[in-house]
Design a protein around this nucleic acid. Structure first.
Lengths: 230, 230
DNA sequence: CGACTTCTTGATGTAACTCAATCCCGGTGG
DNA sequence: CCACCGGGATTGAGTTACATCAAGAAGTCG
């Protein structure tokens, strides 16, 4: 993980969008910008929390291990997003999750002490962060229920709709590079099952493939698969 | 849900423990105390968020529906605990979950506007609430991973250890009344599977039964069942 | 004492995991 | 330039954990 040379504006990221304008110079003085290569691990579950990160460019997956060879992807942080905040806790200062770049990325690091100062000095930022946590908790618990009660097919359908929502589409194709393995970890299923299910969806003309990328062809059918929820 | 007649001290609950002492009178002026009967629904998923609740007495389950006849219990709020805070969100003001009393309970209601005022006026409270959300998010995501990768037996073992941790024990027996159906919803499995698994654990002498209540006999074995998780 | 949940157990079905074999394709070195 | 190699993609077959269904037993409450 290399420290980036060039000056990079701290704009349009979670912290800059919610803090007071006069606080921006302080952030600029305290931030460290890193360049990260595709597949590179930014921090690892179980290590000490040193600070919080923001994404300038690229996508970063936040994932949690199970044993040696299994994982669950909890979330993908994208441009402007925050990550590493799951390390905040009243009980421990150990990251409960790892973060890995899905593609070459530029991220911004803010150390913990300064981050806490930011919260205290910027009341609005603290409130926004709290609401952000609340939103993530809702999201997490929705996924939890889906994991408990929904079929793999339904979970994949939902994941695809969500990914399209979040990352948009380019020529109808979901605008994110995600390996089948990562998709499997994202929906909590095995590689093979995801593979077969994707094929089913193609046969049923709910989606189509452009190489490895996925295009949603019939969102209504996909939505039907996710029904019964709420 | 009846409004309670008697005066009840707002002490040793989440809000009073973290706000400024001089703020307590304001809380007392704004709170409404309800008495709730076992099995009574306090609020329902999908309805408008009107405020936040605290538990004075009894246990309250927070759960999320799936279709008509399935649910997942996300959490059990106990004496002093907060619930309904999952309704906080930057996007919606609809409860994503329901809350139901597991036994006769006394709860305290604070309306949303006053709650937000409390956050703004008590900086420490806001921070604590944020950290509380962060802790819950960690917890939620741990459970999510378990749901994805752990067996029902492991999840039950973990749930029992957690319940013991949280509710303590009386004569060695976990000090909470939880129907098998609720336990099933808590670990995300069916009634029958939970029933059989509990029996297995009894045969293996990891736990024993006192009526419907559960006593942990061999915590090490239970812990082994939950292993592989970080 | 009868109606009504809740418990208990067996039998059966099946979604999804696991393991393994083959295929495909890009890269690499001879 | 082509043969070789390795790793991901693809497919098949077997296994299993768990859900589902069904039906009897046993509590429980009016």
């Amino acid at each position: 993980m290399k420290i980036y040379k060039k000056e990079y504006p701290t704009e349009n990221c979670f912290i800059s969008n919610h803090c007071l304008p006069e606080w921006l110079p302080a952030i600029n003085a305290n931030k460290i910008i890193y360049e990260v290569k595709k597949g590179e691990v930014i921090f690892t579950e179980g290590t000490e929390v040193t600070g919080i990160y923001f994404v300038y460019e690229g996508n970063v997956k936040v994932h949690k291990k199970w044993g040696n060879d299994k994982e669950l992807i909890l979330r993908i942080a994208t441009k402007g997003g925050i990550f590493g905040h799951r390390g905040l806790s009243s009980k421990s200062n150990i990251y409960p999750i790892s973060a890995t770049a899905l593609e070459n990325a530029t991220v911004c690091f803010i150390d913990l002490a300064f981050f806490y100062t930011t919260i205290k000095v910027n009341p609005d930022f603290g409130l926004k962060l709290m609401l952000f946590f609340a939103d993530e908790l809702q999201e997490s618990e929705r996924k939890m229920r889906n994991l408990a009660h929904m079929s793999v097919k339904g979970r994949i359908a939902e994941a695809l709709l969500l990914l399209k929502e979040k990352f948009g589409e380019k020529d109808g194709v979901i605008n994110i590079t995600l390996s089948r393995q990562d998709l499997a970890s994202y929906v909590g299923a095995t590689y093979e099952t995801v593979f077969r299910t994707i094929n089913e969806l193609v046969v049923e003309k709910s989606i189509s493939l452009q190489g490895k990328n996925i295009k949603l062809e019939n969102m209504d059918v996909l939505k039907n698969l996710t029904l019964q929820a709420s």
